[in-house]
Simulated assay, not measured.
Amino acid sequence: MSEEDPTRRRPDPGAGSDVPASGASGSGRPEPGRSGSGQAGSGDARSDRGGADRGGADRSGSSRAGADPRSDSARTGSRDSRADRSRSGRVGSGGARPGRGGSTRSSSERSSGERVVSDRARRTTRTRSRRRDPRRGKIIRRRIVALVVVFGTLGLLYGVYFTPLLGVRSVEVLGTKDLTKPQVLDAAAVPSGNPMLTIDLAAIRDRVAALNRVASVNVSRSWPATVRIDVAERVAVGVIKTPGGAHLIDHTAKDFATVPSAPAGLPELQLTSSAITDPTAVAVVQVLMAVPEKIRAEVLSVSAKSPNSVVLALSAGRQVRWGGTADSPRKAAVLAALMSQPGKVYDVSSPQLATISNP
């Protein structure tokens, strides 16, 4: 009987927990032909680490018995760390088998939980920041002030437009000479008590302007409760004498009034018609207005048979033959120069060939 090789000795069954769990490959499957020799050394490993480590314990017991103690201790530590990770995986996943799938589920669950907690914390932070934000109070106060201003403005507008709060209480008439204030007020017909902003100023103006003596009129509001009417009356530049009285004619040839007798200082317009549509009447009035003011004061009468044959009779028996309305400014300048010379008839109908004659 030969002497037993020390390197082939079987390991002590009681020391199986100290033998490394796996070989260099780390595959976890027992090698063929070595299952019998590894069963004795893997009993304690079966109870501590589960069936997944049985093959590694058998192989380490049979093939690594004579290996370097330092490598054995390294392998033992690696096996223990894998066993610990396996146990933690089973606990964290509710008893699931250790491995990559369980670890993935555990990680996703942890991520989902962390997101839920993070969302809740974020909402809580926002809520607290809103409650503590002093700007919210300022915004609310500003909105309240804006609403008060809006409703106050609406109330004021309603009071001004639809109530007698700012109604008409008086009417002021200015600029009258021959017209009387009652005549203007009767024509204006301003509704008393109506809101100032609803008064139709244009309608009042048109009614007052319909008076013959009114040349122009301006109607305005004088706050808080007065309507102001400014009147400009027509000014007579001539008079047409008729059996029924003297008709006053203004610078537009309008017959705006009839008086019992002609006012002093007005020249007589010797016309058959006083209508402003009559071209002869219009020409007479235009020539009279074109005469220099100093000479106009000496005009006694103006006559014309046609628009181009206007003749002015002056004091002291003098006469001015004017002709038509063409070149009236030049004729007026020439006449002013001729009047410095003695004469009876001054003909400026052709200003280039003006003449003075003594018939």
Rank of each mutant, 00 (worst) to 15 (best):
I139P: 07
V235E: 13
S86H: 10
K344G: 10
R110P: 02
Q352M: 11
D133T: 10
A21L: 12
T258A: 01
A121P: 02
R135I: 12
G51E: 08
D48K: 10
R110N: 08
V348K: 04
N358V: 15
S111A: 11
V214W: 01
I204L: 05
I276M: 02
A24P: 12
G324P: 00
D72M: 15
V219Y: 01
L157N: 05
G41W: 04
G38R: 12
T124D: 12
R49P: 01
S42W: 09
V348R: 04
S309I: 04
S309W: 01
T325S: 05
V291I: 02
V168Q: 03
D347A: 08
V208I: 08
R142V: 13
E298L: 01
R82S: 11
P134H: 11
A275G: 07
S349T: 11
E172F: 07
Q183H: 04
A336H: 01
G159V: 02
S349R: 07
I144E: 10
R46T: 13
D230P: 02
G193M: 14
S309R: 04
G317W: 06
S222R: 06
P32N: 15
R105W: 02
S306T: 07
I295F: 00
S108A: 12
V311I: 09
S60Y: 11
A24L: 14
V320E: 03
D255I: 02
K305E: 06
G159E: 03
V148Y: 03
R82L: 10
L288Q: 00
T7R: 05
S37K: 13
T127E: 11
S71L: 14
A326C: 03
G28W: 06
D119Y: 11
S37A: 15
P224W: 04
I140W: 07
A188F: 13
M289I: 01
R54Y: 02
P30D: 14
R126D: 07
P342A: 10
V310Q: 05
Y346E: 08
G175R: 06
S273H: 03
V214L: 06
P342I: 10
V282N: 01
V311A: 05
S35G: 15
